[in-house]
Nucleic acid binder design. Structure first.
Lengths: 110, 110
DNA sequence: TTATGATGCCTTGCCTGTCTAGGCATTAAC
DNA sequence: GTTAATGCCTAGACAGGCAAGGCATCATAA
């Protein structure tokens, strides 16, 4: 099976989930789709990665969840970013920026 | 102990090591210093991360090693990038670029 | 009717890879 | 003589992403 989609690096997933939720409440499956769509199909989050991550994130208080009726008439568990989660998102984005910068510095070396 | 230095993300270490070695043969301890210096002290590779990584990388044939006399008069194990390792470096840099781009796309979403 | 694919939830177990925390030797500096 | 820097290494803990599964609902197609 072709693997043209980039594997995630450990640590980026939380940030992506938080970012997806910062655009509005969403259920798990929808988070996957939103990330895929926003990244132009470049990032594909597996369910086996997402649900454990959502559980972790909820335990940390970065999101809350509640069951609601989906527009399709089916039930789905909607996740919502907390204020603390929003702060976390900012922190993780800042860390990511630092890392990208640092790697860029190393790479531009001749 | 203050932790202002970014923890590496899994997967970036190999690339950094290969990049460091692409600038010339070097021994383990020197690789750590070179990465730290090139990144303006932002990246600090732990020895407990480096040596297992070097072992893995050598097993894969990306580098070769040989014991030589260091300029200080002491022995040190010098690692050298192979042609295959150089190809790997290019691949990993390309993957890194794709990931950074993909994350940027997600992040610029409103 | 049935069966397939998309949508939705979840769990288990493996595996990789980084980090913490050690150990040991040599050399230079104090 | 002891400390700090340089040099090598290992063992064990741990996180987290992934593969692979299970289950249910609904729409569509055969």
């Amino acid at each position: 099976m072709a693997k043209d989609k980039a594997d995630l690096l450990q640590g980026t997933l939380d940030m992506l989930i938080l970012k997806a939720l910062s655009l509005g409440e969403l259920h798990g499956y929808g988070i996957i789709q939103r990330i895929r769509q926003l990244s132009d199909e470049m990032l594909n989050v597996e369910q086996g990665s997402l649900y454990p991550a959502l559980y972790r994130i909820e335990q940390k208080g970065w999101v809350t969840s509640k069951w609601s009726v989906h527009d399709t008439g089916r039930d789905a568990k909607f996740y919502k970013l907390t204020r603390f989660g929003r702060k976390q998102l900012e922190d993780q984005e800042a860390s990511w920026d630092r890392l990208v910068l640092a790697v860029a510095k190393v790479r531009q070396a001749t």
